[in-house]
Design a protein around this nucleic acid. Structure first.
Length: 662
DNA sequence: AGCACGCCGACT
DNA sequence: GTCGGCGTGCTC
């Protein structure tokens, strides 16, 4: 009797045994349809065996082994095993979650198989663009990366914005392709891939380049994933989910903007695609390149302590670095959030016909609606968050759970009809600027304005066509776009991130402001950046003005060492949620008791409500666990998990290893 | 996660 | 007398 051990998409830390008499070693990695409860599920065969510890009366027989897609290789399964183990997430859920959705279901539509191995469509063969000559700095970085293409090595490319990191990626990829291998290029978000995708396709005509991200249609995603697995796709360009794409001839992994928090998944399987990429590269034995102007302190620390090789790019190509200036807003009465200094600068640039960007990290009209006579504010009843005023659609909206409500005519508590919008959002700033400079010259770009599929392209045309004089936008504008005629950047309300209790707030703010500042002056002239702040003397702004990431990073590292924070210790969170906060906290207190005799040199902190204690009607609490040794922490988490799984509780819980949000 | 079983309250 | 609440337990 032959037994197959199957990974199924259920939240249980176990494989399921099935009888399958014809099973051989060659079935490992294959998808299989099995009976589960009263349903038929697709799973992946992880192992075969001659016997099972499940009593034969309870053993069921597998239905079909699916041959419509190639099997996963042992190295693919091994990476998933590692990730499941490291993040304490059920193997079955991790394995099935790595497949494109169509392959998780019993019968993928036939069309997905028909085209799976088709030739590259004509659109993928644009005119070739040739590689520009590298600067000496770029040359050095590239030859460092390519020094030993058949050995694992992590590289950190620390390059100021506009220093040509992308060109290094492209030439490194070119070398890998020339050796007949595949390249994996990971980027933070989908919104900036169209430009990059075009660039990559143009550079490698005749090579199949595929994208992998969640905005693709299911069919496209299946086709592209299969192309990666077959080796036909030579370049895979994707978001974090692409880190698990099977690539039999993988020759290099590149992570652009490696500091970006979106590489960490924040629900279910809480993996870091950046960290998984490093592990994957080490197992395959190929280089991995992390690139950023403002690396995560974890990566920077790895570079200065020699685990990663560091390449720095200090020169901007084509234009000098922008001049950055703080505008002290203490004691100034701002007009619609704009200081006199910024208004004057905008006048000047508009008059000269140059583009400006006003950056404000708040969408909507105003972050909150308030009653001045009794102090009532618009709060979400399902979340501990404020309802944001969206004037255009005449609604109050919660940015965390999606709840929307009509704008009240009067204060619900005291009847005062004079409710006041407090603070600035993109819509309000857009309105104010439209009054000053005319409606057609002001273009707002945030998640609300670019949602429709090609709205972004329409806007890009307006931006590049020069019709828009002033862009108002959120982070979405900060990332990776080139605006050749944009020479002034104004940042409103820069400090808001500094008030956050998160110890990573300064690191994040520097990254964000560096990225935003980098939008200024890419067309040859020097850009100007005006940052409105109430703390102009803060060392962060000092570092930003001098474009000195390393000085600030050293400062932060010293603080982290002092406070015993990452990267000097390793952390995990036990997160719990329940309808009542008390239930979640009780679960966590019980977890501390359960940890008592296994927490060897592991520090457990008191359970506390989460940063946002209420979300979508559920109360959330968390418990921080910290340890100097990663392996000791791992061992503890494993044992702890097993104990916690054994108990029943009305709280839902999950372990978050290397959490980014505390 | 689903989906059963299971024992106590208000409906045709 | 049944429909249905969600507590507890299982899925090879």
């Amino acid at each position: 009797m032959k037994i197959i051990k199957v990974a199924l998409d259920v939240p249980l830390a176990t494989l399921f045994d099935y009888r399958h008499d014809a099973a051989t070693e060659l079935d490992v990695g294959c998808r299989v349809v099995v009976p589960f409860g009263k349903k038929r599920l697709v799973g992946v065969i992880m192992e075969t065996a001659d016997s099972s510890s499940v009593t034969s009366g309870r053993l069921k027989t597998a239905f079909d082994v699916l041959r419509d897609s190639p099997r996963l290789e042992e190295s693919d399964l091994e990476l998933l095993r590692f990730a499941s183990h490291y993040y304490h997430y059920p193997l079955g859920a991790a394995v099935m979650g790595s497949l494109p959705p169509q392959l998780r279901r019993p019968r993928p539509p036939p069309s997905s198989r028909k085209n799976a191995r088709g030739a590259a469509p004509a659109a993928e063969l644009p005119t070739a663009s040739s590689a520009p000559t590298l600067t000496p700095e770029q040359e050095r970085a590239l030859s460092t990366v390519l020094a030993d293409p058949n050995r694992f090595q992590s590289h950190l490319v620390l390059g100021v914005t506009g220093s040509g990191k992308t060109e290094i990626y492209l030439q490194a990829i070119a070398a890998v392709l020339a050796a007949g291998r595949q390249a994996l290029l990971l980027v933070p978000e989908i919104s900036l891939t169209p430009q990059l995708e075009t660039l990559v396709r143009a550079r490698f005509p005749g090579m199949r380049v595929v994208a992998l991200h969640s905005a693709l249609s299911e069919h496209e995603r299946t086709v592209n994933w299969l192309a990666a697995q077959s080796g036909h796709a030579r370049v895979v360009l994707g978001t974090r989910l692409a880190v698990f794409a099977p690539m039999p001839r993988l020759g290099i992994i590149i992570i652009d903007e490696e500091h970006d928090a979106s590489f960490k998944q924040t629900d279910r399987f809480r993996y870091s695609a950046r960290d998984i990429a490093v592990v994957r590269a080490s197992r395959v034995g190929v280089p991995v390149v992390l690139g950023s102007a403002t690396p995560s302190l974890e990566s920077y620390f790895n570079a200065v302590n020699g685990r990663y090789r560091l390449s720095t790019l200090t020169q901007r190509i084509g234009a000098p670095l922008p001049s950055i200036e703080c505008v002290d807003t203490r004691g100034e009465r701002l007009e619609d959030g704009l200081s006199a200094r910024l208004r004057q600068a905008l006048d000047e640039y508009v008059a000269r016909g140059e583009q400006s960007l006003v950056f404000i990290n708040r969408r909507g009209y105003a972050p909150v609606l308030m009653c001045h006579s009794c102090g009532w504010i618009s709060g979400c009843h399902r979340c501990s968050a404020k309802l944001v005023l969206h004037l255009g659609e005449r609604r109050l909206r919660c940015h965390h759970c999606g709840h929307a409500a009509a704008i009240p005519q009067a204060c619900a508590d005291c009847g005062n009809p004079q409710l006041a919008p407090m603070g600035q959002g993109t819509q309000r700033v857009e309105g104010a600027l439209s009054q000053r400079y005319g409606k057609s010259g002001v273009l707002r770009i945030d998640r609300d304005s670019v949602r429709p599929r090609d709205a972004w392209n329409v806007m890009r045309r307006r931006i590049h066509g020069g019709e828009a004089k002033i862009l108002v936008g959120t982070q979405i504008l900060a990332k990776g776009h080139d605006f050749p005629n944009l020479n002034l950047v104004g940042v409103l309300n820069a400090d808001s991130l500094l008030y956050s209790a998160d110890f990573r707030a300064p690191e994040r703010l520097l990254a964000l402001l560096t990225q935003v500042s980098g939008r200024a002056g890419r067309g040859g002239t020097q850009g100007k950046v005006l940052i409105q702040t109430e703390f102009p003397e803060h060392s962060l702004y000092d570092a930003l003005k001098r474009q000195d990431y390393r000085a600030f990073a050293e400062l932060l590292l010293a603080e982290r060492r002092e406070a015993a924070f990452p990267p000097f210790t390793h952390q995990a969170l036990l997160r719990a949620e329940a309808p009542r906060l008390q239930t979640a906290l009780e679960f966590l207190r019980g977890a501390i008791v359960a940890a008592r005799d296994i927490a060897n040199l592991v520090t457990l902190y008191d359970p506390v409500p989460a940063a946002m204690p209420r979300r979508a009607g559920r109360e959330r609490a968390q418990l921080l666990v910290q340890c100097e040794s990663r392996s000791r922490l791992q061992q503890f988490l494993g044992e702890w998990c097993r104990k916690l799984e054994g108990r029943s509780s009305s709280a839902r819980w999950i372990i978050d290893v290397d959490p980014l949000e505390l």
